[in-house]
């Protein structure tokens, strides 16, 4: 049995002592197992408790011991015998109803009323265990420092949205999107450049075989990007713990940027190398800005 706090034991002992008319210390010692249990105050014979259909019962004594009103005990006894199909045990101290009387005559002579536990059908309550508070209330999670999304985050997002809208509207008010001559299949401009975000790849085409520059490098690049979380098994997010990963990504980031800028501004007719400040800029995406 779990170790119970002294205060609980004491409360339990006090309650029992009051009910049984004994001293608190007596009961406490009995609960703790330090003294042999004393017999409950009503004289009880050493006969076993009557099973259903067995000997008679002294309902008055039971009512006194358990504090259950006698009519309830009677009702429960009748209900049980009806449910079990067994005859009603004889009751001491009361004139049995007619139906019960016949059962009593059929049964052997009833022993004196006696029991050592609660009679069937009577519920008593006892303390099963004490659950300590920590086990229920502990969450196992550290409290986090959080702020309300409204107004703290939403205000920032709204300002960012307005700033972007203002920037884009102003840019669009002053700089027109390019529109060259009608598409002509027979007249390829020199140089022909892809959209700027593919110019890094087009730049690679100047160095490598088309299958390498156009398919293998971007294909493996995208696959490597997508699989980063499954390749990088380092659980730390601290920059000092991830020097290799950060270096590698920075090489990729700078490399892609340099190739794109190079393809955009340093390639002229025939996709040959030019200095933009000497030969001019051959980058139609920014045509209207440059003009």
């Amino acid at each position: 049995m779990a170790q119970l706090p002294e205060s609980l034991l004491r409360r339990s002992a006090e309650a029992r002592a009051k009910a049984e008319g004994r001293s608190v210390e007596d009961v406490l010692a009995e609960i703790k197992g330090e003294a042999p249990p004393t017999a409950p105050p009503p004289a009880v014979a050493e006969t076993p408790a009557p099973a259903a259909g067995g000997g008679g019962r002294d309902l008055d004594a039971e009512a006194a011991t358990f504090g259950v009103p006698r009519p309830l005990l009677e009702r429960s006894m009748f209900a049980r015998s009806k449910a079990d199909g067994t005859p009603v045990p004889a009751m001491a101290g009361v004139a049995a109803p007619a139906a019960a009387a016949t059962a009593v005559t059929a049964a052997p002579a009833p022993a004196p009323a006696a029991f050592s536990g609660p009679p069937p059908g009577v519920r008593t309550q006892r303390l099963l265990t004490v659950v300590k508070a920590g086990a229920i209330q502990g969450t196992g999670r550290e409290p986090e420092d959080k702020v309300n999304v409204w107004p703290h985050l939403l205000a920032i997002e709204f300002v960012a949205l307005l700033a972007m809208l203002a920037f884009l509207t102003l840019l669009s008010a002053f700089v027109d999107a390019p529109l060259l001559e009608f598409a002509n299949f027979n007249q390829q401009p020199n140089p022909s450049k892809a959209p700027w975000y593919f110019l890094g790849l087009q730049e690679l085409l100047a160095y490598f075989d088309p299958q390498v520059a156009g398919i293998i490098i971007p294909g493996f690049g995208v696959a490597a990007l997508a699989f980063i979380p499954y390749i990088d098994r380092n659980p730390s997010v601290r920059p000092s713990d991830r020097k290799f990963a950060i270096s590698l990504f920075t090489v990729f980031f700078v490399g892609a940027s340099v190739l794109t800028i190079f393809g955009s501004f340093f390639r002229g007719p025939g996709f040959n190398f030019v200095f933009p400040w000497v030969d001019g800029i051959f980058f139609d995406d920014l045509l209207t800005i440059l003009e």
Binding site: L179, F182, A183, P189, P195, P210
Partner: peptide, 28 residues
């Protein structure tokens, strides 16, 4: 962005997309 690039149907759109989709043609 790339699919939108063709829609103006001017010289810039046509030839930028030609270069871009030629790259896809190098698929082994």
């Amino acid at each position: 962005s790339f699919t939108g690039y063709l829609l103006p149907w001017d010289q810039l759109a046509l030839w930028a997309v030609t270069v871009g989709s030629n790259m896809a043609g190098y698929t082994p």
